[in-house]
């Protein structure tokens, strides 16, 4: 039942959707968006892929088990909270640092972003576990 139109469109859509999910993730720091919604978009991308090419193919391009994404996400989110602890502040205190990139460029980076990245991975992992297992059931 695979339609050529859908398969071709999916090939073009997937990179864009993944970029969009990353955009949502990083935009969420100051504006609407964030790890949760970004993760959902990323998961939707892989679900679209699985609808077109089958669950087996999707698991192949994912390379890691979704459950490991969850574990990794939880650890990243927790580590972002621990940064505060190591600077003698309570757990989950937000810390911001300036990374000098050279040529006058600076990267203003804070722990909340990493917390969001953790959420992003957990959401992708959890959504994919649920939907891919359901899709395999038939």
């Amino acid at each position: 039942m695979t339609s050529v139109i859908l398969a071709t469109a999916t090939r073009y859509l997937m990179p864009m959707l993944l970029l969009f999910s990353a955009f949502l993730l990083f935009r969420g720091h100051n504006l609407p968006g964030g790890g949760f919604i970004g993760g959902l978009v990323a998961a939707a991308t892989f679900i679209l892929h699985s609808l077109v090419f089958g669950v087996g193919e999707t698991r192949k391009i994912l390379r890691v088990r979704p459950v490991k994404l969850m574990g990794l996400g939880l650890l990243i989110a927790m580590a972002s909270g621990l940064v505060g602890v190591f600077t003698r502040a309570p757990f989950l205190t937000g810390k911001w640092y300036e990374l000098v990139l050279g040529q006058g460029d600076k990267w203003h980076v804070g722990t909340p972003v990493f917390f969001d990245v953790g959420v992003y991975l957990v959401v992708i992992g959890a959504t994919l576990i649920i939907i891919l297992s359901l899709a395999e059931e038939d």
């Binding site: 088990r65 490991k68 969850m70 574990g71 990794l72 939880l74 650890l75």
Partner: peptide, 10 residues
């Protein structure tokens, strides 16, 4: 941490 590492060793 224990649970998350456990998830990594699924």
């Amino acid at each position: 941490t224990t649970a998350a590492v456990g998830l990594l060793c699924w």
